[in-house]
Structures are given as structure tokens and as C-alpha cells.
Nucleic acid binder design. Structure first.
Length: 982
DNA sequence: GAGCCGTTTCCTGTTT
DNA sequence: TAAACAGGAAACGGCT
């Protein structure tokens, strides 16, 4: 058994150079921001902005800190936006690994910067950040420690810090095992740094990055470049939270310390009410016991309300917290509730009034800052049982019972939307698992990114290696993490603006099936993958008959999945197969699964809320609920639906359900609303139709691709200031455009490619809904651009590194490269996969992502297979691939592989084998020794001994000659062995 | 359907 | 000690 497959290791080294020095064009790469917080029994972030003192070794676990952006002297009655900033200390608790996804493998990363501002104290070292100082210390340690600590002293992505390794200079935070830690703070160093304790810090913005692992500085440079890294990142502007500003000169009302922090203030001042204009999700994490305590202190019904289906919920009283601005040393925090502001100690269970009183900044900070946050608490563990009876603070449980309702009422009165819940559970981790330390640790072992190991290659270049184990969860499972969704809300909108400088986009790098699905290595059959939408873990895998039957496994729905309470087990799946998914009403419209109700800013919806293709409404009453007001009928080409699902089912269902819609008066039929569907537009989208295109169109039509009026119901809803739900958007824009299927300039596709693109476009349409589609460029952009943007957004939401094998910028354009297009399609299905329900509807229940892509594409033509040696040559001929493979002596045919895993991954993608490893690939390469396509590499002094190969110069010459003559050279039967022994 | 070819997969052992 | 290398063996899938 191969120990690891789907290695997704990527060396950050090559691009790090560009990162620091710019690429060949002198452009400096700017990583993308993404937020990530670490899972763990030990909380990373706290629901309390002040953190938890209960956590050993770290008293300040709040990673987020609201900062008022408006002058505090302004009208206190006027709301002002708040920005969330990141506490540098929290960095210690922040996982820093790099996203790197090859379907099953992913790594998420954040790179949190140090302090860039200080609240009210002078910086002793203005030029250096807090972390730099820390890092400096670490570097000094390293210097003293000698080379034996060279890896340890540097904190890079994926550095592994064991909780047992309390002496590690990397991190003073008693992290859980295998967690990564970026901060090199040492506890002794911290204690020895007076200003650390006394300094009032206004933390920097959250500056996180997302992108290729190659974009990330190598471990050895991460410290010294942290600043630039941060500077090159983009600030995360949290969603505004409006708060009636408290009087600066007045003492905060209702300051309580720990003993009373859960008490409900007696009076409530409207002037101090909290106005939450926008959902303000924020990643927080609680230690299990604290979490439980908090949740118990919250309104149980409210928690349960959203948790069942990840619904929108109100922030509870406990969710709304103020904190003294930037006073990291302070031990007191304020809580603002509807009734006023209160102060608590850092932790509700570890009151330290003494600290609070002794806090040197307490008095002033209360005056200076009134920061408010609607902390999105961690609901994951609620279902396991927070009950009022077990509330630690019994004072609050009863009183708070109706609290959310009151707040909801007030919010609604202000025309505000309750905050969307967010969780802190990282991707790939069942939320339920977070409850149990045992399960949690178990899952963490399997899901979190383990630390990167470094090695020094023959030329002394440090290359980070990333263990791939533990990342065996399907992306969907990762993607469905509400943590990601919440994270996405905070940062992902930035991502689309991010620009990667490197566009290593050789066509050879794009291949079908290159993104693997979740591969269970123990599965002996080809389709080991798992549909990413299936939020479950594989427990069993049974070979049932043919290889395509891969359903013999127990489905464990993700805790965050609506299926959680209705797990689909093997029998269900088999049953579905037997009956071919009968057209019974089996689903209801989930209000949270509305395809078009969110804007792109809520990019998490790209993952979370695919546009319901079919709304099987069993209970008509549900449609009359407040959540189901509007139904539209986007015009989805039925041909596509037929191909990907059960056409009759869909049509019948819609026909049956539509007339009974209570909102029929607000429903417009597709015929009325739309004059052109995406695929309809396809035919008229290309004003530059060449004869070839006309032929393609004719063939297209000849294939009986009739884009009929569709039968898809899309539920739309929006909130207005008055709380009304209105139409968000009326679809029909297809008629106003030339569609993105084939915009001008992109009309050079064959009929097959055109058909493929149309399928994909409709697939996008179906899964995302038109509104989201529009937000990614539809219909102005061509399909491949839309697809890429959608993938880009979804990957951003999911915290997945790059949507492609190599980093592509947001403006990436596949052009005519259908392999690239296919790659993106694959990724789309992986990351942006719809819910399980949709999977069923499309008839993909038994299919992996690979199989789905194959199913889609096989009808549109095959992918040309390329021999390995040719593949390598193509890579070598493209200097953009130099970070991966490059010529050492081209005339001699000597080349060097810099990143084996990357290369193997590319090869696997090109060959449609997601399980490719360098080991296998090298084995295939060694067969070329026999045919003399490759030759032994002469031992040269300046030539590394490993990862250096040599092409037979005759092969290169022949290929070059073939190129000149424009003839093809398949290479099949190639044998340059003059003494062939074959 | 057989055979060829180019891997792919797994393995053991060796070298770096 | 891990990674890379080397190569045997069997199997697989595409192609002819």
C-alpha cells in the first residue's frame, strides 16, 4: 500500500523568490487573504474578545478585535462601522499552513501579520512588528542554537509544533498536537518582554493570504519577510457593525465583573442598543468547556434553531461583545448588550477581578474604545446538548430565554438581518466532532494539515515538504465546513481582487481529472473518490459487483449537513439506484439553500447554497412559510438537465408543484421572464461565427440540444429594511447578452468543445443560480471565464489554495485550452459541488467527481493522451514551468526536477490519474532508459545527483524537427536504443 | 479478441 | 532516516 497518494506537496521555494523579488516582469506577488483558525480542544480564538484565561499558557485567545473606524467623538447616536482587526497574540494560536488541494489534500493557511499600529503607546521599535521582534528572538535563538535548529527556529507554513514541545521556540502556545503554529513566541521571551505585558496594542488587520503554497515564503524566510508578506496582503474589512457610540467621557454603564457578567442589566437604554446592520460573522472558537458554558448560557432554542440547518440566527446576548480597543494586556472586557455595557474578565469561568482592576489600561480603554462585535459563536456542540439546566451561570439561562426574540424584533425593526451563523470548525472536520475532544483529536489527525518538513536539496535550497496524510477528506466535507463559510464572509471577497503574478498555465498542466476526489487508499477500485458534496466519512468500502458500484460504504453525514439527522446509508443509496430516484416528493425547500439570495460577498454560498435545481416540495405549507416567498423559474436548458439528471422527474415535479405555489401571483414563468437561457444564448453569443462555428452550431442543434423552457424553481428572498422579502432579482438577463458561452474572440471552439462549454455553463447555471453566475461574469464573460471565477470564488471560500494545479490569477483565461477548462470544471464539481440532493437529482449518486466530469465530458470528446516523455518535454520547453522542472543543459538534454510532487501531480492530472505519485512516475520514466529515450546522467560536479535526468538528445532533436515540419510525432513505439533489447 | 505498447502499481533492494 | 533510485513483475487500458 502506498503510504501516500495524492501528494499535494508543493514547494514554496520557486515562487517565493518571485514573492520577494518579483517575477520576471518585476511584479511582486501579493498573496490573497484568507482566514483560518485552528481547530482544537484548546481554543484558538475565543468568543470572548478578551480570550480565556483558562487556557494554559495563553490568556488572550481572542484573535479578533473590533476597532472603531469613526471618531469616537462623533455622534453617538449614529452608527458607525467597525473594523475587525487581528490581535497579534492570536497569531500564536493561529494555524498557518498553506492551502494546497489536490482534491483530497488541502492545506489552509493564514499568515497573520504583526502589529502595525498601536493604540496609544509609542512603539519602541516602530519599524518592527511585534512578531518581528519575536521572530528576531527566535532567530537569535536559532543563531545560537546552530544549524541543528535551523528548521525549528524558523516558522514557516506547516511547521509542526507539538503541544508536548513546550520548549519549542516556535510557539509558546500549548497547542494541541499536530497543530501548526506560526508564532515563534517563546513563553520565556514573552515574560521577559516587559512591553509585551504592558503595551496596549491595537492589533493589525487580519492579513491572511491564500494562494499557492509556492507563494508562501519558505520557512527560512517567513520571519524576515513577514512584514512584507503582510503588507502585500490585503486588509480584511469586516462587515460593518453599527453601534451607537457610547459617550467617551462617560463611564461605561453597567460594568460588571465576572460575578455579574451574565446578569442581565436591569435597564436597557435604547441609545445603547446595538445595531447590527450586516451579519458580522467572525471566527471564534471556544474551548470545549467554555463553549459549552457559553452555549448553555445562550438561549438554547435559538441555538437549536439555526443549528439544525445552519440557519440564520440572531446573535444572542452573549454574541454581542465589546472589547476595549486594543488593550491586549487588559484583563477586562466589556460586554454590550441591549441593556448596556458590562465588563467581564477575560474568561467567564476564571474571573479575575483583580486583574481587571489592575489593568493599567482598563480605565482609558473603556473610554477610548467601544468596540462591538457580533460574535458568531460556535454552535457546533450545541446539539450535543447544551441545556439550560446545565448552565453554569444559571442566572442567565432563564432570563435569556426570550432574549433573542427581543433582539430579533429590534433588529427587524431596524430592517436588519440577523447575523448569519458561523462556525469555527475547520474544513474537513465534522462539527459534531468539535464537541468531543476525543473525536476532535481524532479528526484533527486526519484533517488538519500537518507540519511541513523541510529538506535541503543538493544545492542547498530548502524545500518544504508537506505531509499529505490527514488530508483525506473530500473537499466537500471541507467545503461544507461552516467555519469556512464564516471565514469566507470575512475575507473571501478580497480574493477575487487578488492578483497572482504567476500564471504558469502551460497547457500541459491542465488535464482531465487532475483534481482527485477523495481517495480512500484502501479502496481497491478505481472510483475511490467521493462526491465532494457528500459530507461524510468513509467507514466501509465494499466492492459490489462492478467497479462503478462504489456505494458500499456507510455514509456519515457531516455534522453541519442538513443530512445529519437523516443519514443516508448504504441501503438508501442502493435503493436510489434501484429505483432510479423515483419522482416522489422527497425534499422540501430549505430556506437556507436558496440559490440566489446572497450576493457574492457571501461567497460561502457558493459552497453552501447551491441553487436548487428542483424544488421537490412535499409539504406545500412550507412554501407558504415566510422563508418561501418567491419562486422564479430560471430557464435551464432541459437538455442539460436530461443529461445530468432525470429530466422527467424534474419536469414532473415542477409541474406538479408549481400550480400550488402560494406565491403564484409572484411567480413568473420562465417563458414570461426569460427570453433566452444560457444555452439559448449560446447560439447567438458569437457574432463572429465562422463557418466552423456554424457547423458546430448545426451539429449542436443536430444533437438535439433543444434548450427548452426550463422547469427549475429558484427561490429568492431578500431582506429589506422593513423586513419584507422581495424579489432579489428577476432572471432574464440572458436575453440581454451575448452570452458567455462563447463571447467574441472565443468562437474557435469545435462543436464538441462548444457542446461541452454549453453543458458546463448550464451546470453552473443550475448549481449556482443566475445571480451568482452574474457575479462571476455571466453573461458578459465567456464560459471559461465564468467557470474560472466561480471556481476561484468557491476555492476561496473553501480555503482551498488554488483552483488549479498552479496558481492562476483572478483574470485567468483558459482561452481555447479545453484541458484547462476541463480542469476548472473538475474543480468546480469538487469544491462547489452541490448538495447531496442535487447529486441525486443529477444521477450522480454513485459517481465520484471524476466520474461526473467524465460523464460530462465523455460526451464531448476525448482527451488526448500524452506520453510521459512528451509531457516532460513540453513542460521543459515552457520556461514558466521552471519552478517545477527545467533544463540544466538543454543541449545535452539534461533536466532537473525541482518539485517531484508537483510534477507528479501535473502528470497525474494530465493523464487523468489523481493517484499519481512521483514514485510511480519515476518508475515510468525509468522505462525510458530501456528505450533510450532517457539516458543515464553523467556525473558532473555541479550537477545534483538526484532528480536529474537526461533526455536522449536525439529525441529532442527529432521533436524539434517535427515541430518545424508541423508534423505530428506521437512517439508511440519510440525506441532509440540502437542495441535494443526489446 | 489478441497482441502490442505505455504506463501503472507494487514490490524489494540500494544509494544518497 | 527519508528520499530517491533501480528494476522486476504483474496488471491495466488504449490502440491496432
Amino acid at each position: 500500500m502506498v503510504a501516500c497518494e495524492n501528494k499535494a506537496r508543493e514547494s514554496p521555494m520557486p515562487l517565493y523568490y518571485e514573492y520577494c523579488h518579483g517575477n520576471s516582469n518585476g511584479e511582486v506577488h501579493r498573496p490573497q487573504p484568507i482566514v483560518w483558525c485552528r481547530l482544537g480542544p484548546v481554543p484558538v480564538l475565543s468568543k470572548f474578545p478578551g480570550g480565556h484565561r483558562s487556557v494554559i499558557g495563553c490568556r488572550r485567545h481572542s484573535a479578533f478585535q473590533p476597532v472603531a473606524t469613526k471618531s469616537l467623538t462623533s455622534d453617538r447616536t449614529r452608527p458607525y462601522p467597525l473594523e475587525w482587526r487581528y490581535k497579534p497574540e492570536a497569531e500564536e494560536n493561529t494555524q498557518v499552513t498553506w492551502c494546497c488541494s489536490a482534491g483530497t489534500n488541502y492545506r489552509c493557511a493564514i499568515a497573520v501579520t504583526g502589529v502595525d499600529r498601536f493604540w496609544d503607546l509609542h512603539l519602541r521599535n516602530p519599524g518592527r512588528t511585534y512578531l518581528d521582534k519575536i521572530s528576531q528572538g527566535a532567530e537569535k535563538d536559532q543563531e545560537h542554537g546552530g544549524r541543528e535548529h535551523e528548521d525549528e527556529g524558523e516558522i514557516g507554513s506547516g511547521d509542526y509544533v507539538s503541544s508536548r514541545d513546550t520548549n519549542s521556540p516556535k510557539c509558546d502556545f500549548r497547542s494541541d498536537e499536530s497543530s501548526t503554529c506560526m508564532s515563534p513566541v517563546h513563553e520565556s521571551m514573552r515574560r521577559a518582554t516587559p512591553q509585551y505585558r504592558s503595551r496596549t496594542v491595537k492589533s493589525s488587520y487580519i492579513k491572511t493570504t491564500c494562494g499557492s503554497i509556492r507563494d508562501f515564503p519558505t520557512a527560512e524566510h517567513v520571519t524576515e519577510n513577514r512584514n512584507s508578506f503582510a503588507q502585500n496582503s490585503k486588509q480584511i474589512h469586516a462587515r460593518p457593525v453599527y453601534i451607537s457610540e457610547l459617550p467617551r467621557s462617560q463611564p461605561p454603564p453597567n460594568i460588571h465583573h465576572r460575578k455579574t457578567e451574565y446578569n442581565r442589566p436591569e435597564s436597557f437604554s435604547e441609545n445603547e442598543s446595538i445595531l447590527i446592520n450586516k451579519p458580522t460573522p467572525l471566527l471564534v472558537s471556544l474551548k470545549d468547556d467554555d463553549k459549552e458554558r457559553w452555549l448553555r448560557s445562550s438561549s438554547p432554542h435559538n441555538i437549536a434553531e439555526h443549528f439544525s440547518g445552519e440557519h440564520v440566527t440572531l446573535p444572542t446576548e452573549d454574541d454581542i461583545i465589546t472589547k476595549k480597543g486594543g488593550n491586549m494586556a487588559a484583563t477586562s472586557i466589556c460586554f454590550i448588550t441591549e441593556q448596556g455595557r458590562r465588563t467581564s474578565t477575560l474568561s467567564p469561568n476564571t474571573a479575575n477581578e483583580e486583574n481587571a482592576r489592575n489593568s493599567p489600561m482598563e480605565a482609558t480603554s473603556d473610554e477610548r474604545t467601544t468596540a462591538l462585535s457580533a460574535i458568531i459563536d460556535v454552535r457546533d456542540s450545541v446539539q450535543d446538548g447544551a441545556t439550560p439546566n446545565t448552565t453554569v451561570d444559571n442566572n442567565s439561562s432563564s432570563n435569556e430565554a426570550d432574549y433573542p426574540h427581543e433582539l430579533r424584533r429590534r433588529l427587524k425593526a431596524y430592517g436588519m438581518k440577523p447575523a448569519v451563523i458561523a462556525r469555527d470548525t475547520p474544513r474537513g472536520v465534522s462539527t459534531a466532532v468539535a464537541v468531543s475532544a476525543t473525536e476532535s483529536s481524532d479528526l484533527q489527525e486526519r484533517t488538519r494539515s500537518k507540519g511541513a518538513r523541510g529538506r535541503q536539496d543538493d544545492e542547498g535550497i530548502f524545500i518544504l515538504k508537506y505531509p499529505e496524510i490527514g488530508d483525506k477528506h473530500p473537499l466537500c466535507e471541507q467545503s461544507t465546513s461552516s467555519m469556512l463559510r464564516s471565514a469566507a464572509r470575512n475575507h473571501t471577497r478580497i480574493r477575487s481582487k487578488q492578483t497572482f503574478e504567476e500564471t504558469i498555465s502551460s497547457k500541459e498542466q491542465y488535464a482531465p481529472n487532475e483534481y482527485s476526489t477523495h481517495i480512500d487508499e484502501e479502496q481497491p477500485i478505481e472510483d475511490k473518490g467521493e462526491s465532494p458534496h457528500k459530507s461524510y466519512q468513509l467507514e466501509y468500502h465494499t466492492k459490489i459487483g462492478d467497479k462503478q458500484n462504489l456505494l458500499g460504504r456507510r455514509v456519515l453525514p457531516h455534522a453541519s449537513s442538513p443530512l445529519q439527522n437523516n443519514p443516508i446509508v448504504d441501503e438508501d443509496i442502493f435503493e436510489y439506484r434501484r429505483r432510479d430516484y423515483p419522482g416522489k416528493c422527497s425534499r422540501t425547500v430549505n430556506p437556507t439553500q436558496i440559490g440566489d439570495q446572497h450576493s457574492l460577498e457571501d461567497r460561502a454560498d457558493f459552497l453552501q447554497n447551491p441553487c436548487p435545481v428542483v424544488t421537490h416540495i412535499q409539504n406545500e405549507d412550507k412554501r407558504s412559510s415566510e422563508d418561501c416567498n418567491t419562486y422564479l423559474r430560471p430557464n435551464i436548458p432541459s437538455e442539460i438537465i436530461t443529461e445530468i439528471g432525470d429530466r422527467e422527474l424534474i419536469k414532473n415535479e415542477v409541474v406538479r408543484t408549481e400550480p400550488s405555489s402560494p406565491t403564484k401571483n409572484r411567480t413568473q414563468t420562465a417563458d414570461q421572464q426569460f427570453t433566452q437561457s444560457p444555452a439559448d444564448s449560446l447560439h447567438s453569443s458569437c457574432p463572429l461565427k465562422e463557418p466552423r462555428q456554424k457547423d458546430a452550431q448545426q451539429r449542436h442543434e443536430g444533437q438535439n440540444i433543444s434548450f427548452q423552457r426550463s422547469t427549475v424553481l429558484v427561490q429568492l428572498r431578500d431582506w429589506t429594511p422593513g423586513g419584507e422579502e422581495v424579489f432579489v432579482q428577476q432572471m432574464g438577463a440572458a436575453s440581454e447578452t451575448k452570452l458567455g458561452a462563447d463571447a467574441p474572440g472565443h468562437c474557435l471552439f469545435s462543436a464538441e468543445d462548444t457542446a461541452l462549454r454549453s453543458r458546463v455553463l448550464v451546470l453552473l447555471w443550475v448549481l449556482l443560480g443566475e445571480r451568482r453566475l452574474r457575479e462571476v461574469g455571466y453573461p458578459a464573460e465567456p464560459v471559461h471565464r465564468i467557470l474560472w471565477r466561480a471556481v476561484d470564488v468557491c476555492c476561496s471560500v473553501a480555503g482551498v489554495k488554488s483552483a488549479a494545479a498552479v496558481p492562476l490569477n483572478a483574470d485567468h483565461d483558459c482561452g481555447l485550452d479545453m484541458l484547462c477548462f476541463r480542469d476548472h470544471t473538475h474543480r468546480f464539481l469538487e469544491v462547489c459541488a452541490p448538495t447531496r440532493e442535487h447529486w441525486k437529482q443529477f444521477g450522480w449518486v454513485s459517481l465520484t467527481v471524476d466520474a461526473v466530469v467524465r460523464k460530462i465530458y465523455d460526451e464531448g470528446g476525448r482527451i488526448e493522451r500524452v506520453m510521459l516523455w512528451r509531457f516532460l518535454l513540453n513542460l521543459l520547453e515552457d520556461p514558466r514551468n521552471a519552478p517545477c522542472i527545467h533544463w540544466v543543459q538543454r543541449d545535452e538534454g539534461i533536466f532537473r526536477i525541482l518539485n517531484t510532487d508537483w510534477l507528479a501531480r501535473l502528470w497525474g492530472r494530465r493523464h487523468g490519474n489523481p493517484r499519481m505519485t512521483y514514485e510511480k512516475m519515476a518508475r515510468a520514466m525509468r522505462t525510458y532508459y530501456r528505450s533510450k529515450v532517457l539516458q543515464p546522467v553523467p556525473r558532473l560536479r555541479n550537477l545534483p545527483r538526484k532528480l536529474v535526468y537526461k533526455f536522449n538528445p536525439a529525441v529532442i532533436q527529432k521533436v524539434a524537427a517535427m515541430k518545424l515540419s508541423s508534423s505530428t510525432f506521437s512517439g508511440r513505439g519510440l525506441n532509440y536504443n540502437t542495441n535494443s533489447n526489446k
